[in-house]
Design a protein around this nucleic acid. Structure first.
Lengths: 223, 223
DNA sequence: AAGATGTTGTTATTGCGATAACAGCACAAG
DNA sequence: CTTGTGCTGTTATCGCAATAACAACATCTT
């Protein structure tokens, strides 16, 4: 009989839209737009206005009835909800090609997720510099996580090592794992995992491409 | 009044699970497992067996009632459905950090998506070699797409250029776009787009992490 | 041989997210 | 002041995906 859990009973589908709202709002803010209606914002994101209002309703009180949303109020409100009102320090674990690409990806820091540590076991990679930060031996991982108060880790190690590294991360106090390894991770219920599988993405695309091509071959000339 | 469209009226949710099924089955195949029941396969993927059978039912005839699935039959059947029975040539457009990482990502080729072209406009990047393939000037893009019969492109250019490049890809005959740029692309109805937004992923993770930490602070010691 | 167990294919039910509908408020115009 | 338009917050409805249920079939054991 736990309580409301502070609005954590929000559907996943809604959570995934929050970053899109924030992104568009920041864009509007940058070009000096002050007010925006649910209809305007929704149309620019190809969704229905009622869905946007419904999403916002989980948190409530972004505006008052009759008045459009104020961009300058909404941006910080969303940032607070998402949890990026303050910069969120992160660690990249695994400095292979993908880890390096993410270490170079300045957008991450701009979105509020500065990289405060890059780790690998490969001696050849240790010491490599990415945007002023050097790859460290994985032995130092726990110490850095603790010192920098890192709660989110980006996991880019080979699938075979993913679970072992995950266990270390959880033990070190990490609460969220952004998993790029093609493996399901076992974690306690108090740890959030988001799997990002490139293979799934490109295969689902391949399925649709196959369908399109087959249908073009069938009734294409007739259309 | 179009016909069945050859089984293309499959829910997105199901399509996204097909690669997971295939992956697990290949793993089983590699260790010599011959038969597998819907229950076994589903449990290893943390889903319900009825959902797996329901998914398979869209395509039909993987097994006969009473008999478990045969791994050696199922793998090629799924590959055919997904459209990767034959290797699917792809192009990487944008040879920045992310494009380079994907060019180095040998897993793509192993999964059936060999990279047959890497393109960029930056003269400093042209000629760089990734696994035996060199970055080419984007002027050559259309010719290569046509010659190699490329239908799927991986888009890793800056958001500002994404739409212009997309238009060129579509005109050149590309039917599927794996979009890593944080922008919504406008394409004809006969082109499939899959957006892969890293920022969305990490922000949804941040939201959950914030919830976990807040709840731990609230009722953590009591539990 | 017969029953127990386990399996798939298929249909029915449930549950939840997307959409629509509406009530109440704000502001502008006449 | 009154009316009209447009907006949000909230509730109700709809539709689809996830789950459960069941019928038909195979295999093994006794």
């Amino acid at each position: 009989m736990r309580k409301n859990r502070k609005g954590c009973d929000v559907p996943d589908a809604t959570i995934l839209r929050l970053p899109l709202y924030l992104e568009k709002l920041k864009l509007l803010q940058a070009i000096g737009v002050e007010d925006v209606s649910s209809r305007q914002l929704a149309e620019s994101l190809d969704i229905k206005a009622s869905q946007l209002r419904h999403d916002f309703h989980y948190f409530g009180g972004f505006s008052r009835p009759g008045r459009p949303y104020q961009v300058d109020k909404l941006v910080p409100a969303l940032e607070k909800i998402i949890g990026i009102a303050e910069p969120v320090p992160t660690a990249i674990v695994g400095a292979g090609h993908l880890g390096q690409a993410l270490a170079n990806y300045q957008n991450l820091e701009m979105q509020g997720f500065p990289v405060r540590g890059i780790f690998d076991v490969n001696p050849k990679l240790i010491g490599l510099d990415f945007r002023g930060r050097q790859v460290q031996d994985m032995d130092e991982m726990e110490a850095v996580i603790s010192k920098e108060n890192i709660k989110i880790a980006i996991l880019t190690v080979p699938a075979a090592n993913a679970q072992a590294v995950t266990d270390r991360l959880v033990a070190a106090g990490v609460v969220g794992i952004f998993n790029f390894a093609p493996t399901d991770l076992k974690v306690p219920a108090t740890v959030a995992v988001r799997n990002e599988r490139l293979a799934v993405g490109i295969m689902s695309l391949s399925f649709k491409v196959k369908c399109i091509l087959e249908n073009q071959a069938l009734d294409g000339p007739a259309c």
